[in-house]
Amino acid sequence: MDADEVSAEDIELEYVSPAGVRERGLLSRLWPVRFESVRPERRFPAFRGQGNWCGWYGSATCGGHVGYESWLERDRLMLLDFDPLVTGMASQPFRLSWTSTDGKRVRHTPDFFVRRADGTGLVVDVRPDERIEPDDAAKFAVTAAACRAVGWNFQRVGTPEAVLMANVRWLGGYRHPRVHRPEVAARLVEVFADGGGLLAGALRVGDQIAVLPVLFHLLWRRVLAVDLEAGLLSADTQVRLGLVREGGQDAVASSAAASR
């Protein structure tokens, strides 16, 4: 199949519903399904000598676990979880199949389906550039075309930037709501309204042992913000009010979000 000629009528889709029922049909009919809530289309295997690492990531966005089949997929899940514009995601959400130009049946299971705050869908495949063979590239091209046909976006992503990923992993350790202390959070928003050093600002609020976890939680939620690509988080990292908030408000109008 020529990717430039793909239509939603050419693609068959198979998925497992939240109730565990396997469904199948044309993409043109099934695309409205809430794929961010479906079960994985296939199992995550574990066996002796396995070359990849499978597991389950505890997502703050989803309030539950999302599966992954490699450390690279786990990192991508964490980045999606960190994105305030993501409202839901599912791993191995469905299997696509189509007939190739030589008459063979081709199958492909994308790694993730993502729902964004504006209601749009995003299909994600995780594969480093150096591991893309010609057959893989052809599958990604058809998958991207199929997504365009139904109004979804498609991304093929590789290895994230090392400093960014190290910082997000650190903040991810404070993603759980149990870390949040509203009175401390509100004070941190006041302290960093005009920006300032991470540790100095925390000490203005109180004991760093009690304050820093709340600060990291607010950074995870984007209530506060830092440049995560400039360097590893440190005492001198400059902290400011976040530009993206829950509810789509700006930093000034939504400073009260920290007290929730």
Rank of each mutant, 00 (worst) to 15 (best):
D2T: 09
A3F: 06
S7R: 13
S7N: 10
E9Q: 13
E9R: 14
I11W: 03
I11E: 00
L13P: 00
E14A: 13
V16T: 11
P18M: 11
A19Y: 09
L26A: 12
S28T: 08
R29T: 13
W31I: 04
V33E: 00
R34K: 06
R34Y: 04
F35G: 03
S37F: 10
V38K: 00
P40Q: 00
P45Q: 09
P45L: 12
N52L: 14
W53H: 12
Y57L: 03
G58S: 15
G58Q: 15
S59K: 08
G63N: 11
G64N: 14
G64W: 15
G64E: 15
V66W: 01
Y68S: 04
Y68V: 02
E69N: 08
W71P: 11
W71V: 13
L72Y: 01
R76K: 14
L77Q: 01
L80N: 06
D81M: 02
F82K: 02
P84F: 07
L85G: 09
V86S: 02
Q92R: 05
R95T: 11
L96I: 05
S97N: 05
S97D: 07
S97W: 02
K104S: 09
K104M: 07
R105Y: 04
R105I: 13
R105W: 08
R107D: 10
H108T: 03
H108D: 04
T109F: 06
F113W: 05
V114P: 00
R115W: 04
R116C: 12
G121L: 06
L122M: 10
V123I: 15
V123W: 00
V124H: 03
D125P: 02
R127C: 14
P128R: 08
P128Q: 08
D129Q: 13
E130W: 12
R131E: 12
I132Y: 11
A137P: 04
A138S: 14
A138W: 00
A138G: 13
A141N: 02
V142N: 01
A146W: 00
C147T: 08
C147Q: 07
R148T: 05
W152S: 07
W152P: 03
G158C: 09
G158H: 06
G158S: 12
E161C: 07
E161S: 10
L164Q: 06
M165Q: 15
R169K: 15
W170S: 10
L171H: 01
G172I: 01
G172V: 01
P177F: 10
V179N: 14
R181F: 00
E183W: 08
E183N: 09
V184D: 01
A185P: 01
A186V: 05
L199V: 14
A200C: 09
A202Y: 02
L203V: 10
G206T: 02
D207W: 02
I209C: 08
I209V: 12
I209T: 11
F216P: 00
L218Q: 03
L219P: 02
R222E: 14
R222S: 15
R222M: 15
L228Y: 12
E229M: 13
A230T: 08
G231S: 14
S234E: 09
S234Q: 03
A235F: 11
D236C: 03
D236E: 09
T237E: 05
R240Q: 12
L243R: 15
R245K: 14
E246Q: 12
G247V: 12
G248H: 03
Q249H: 13
A251N: 11
A253E: 15
A253P: 11
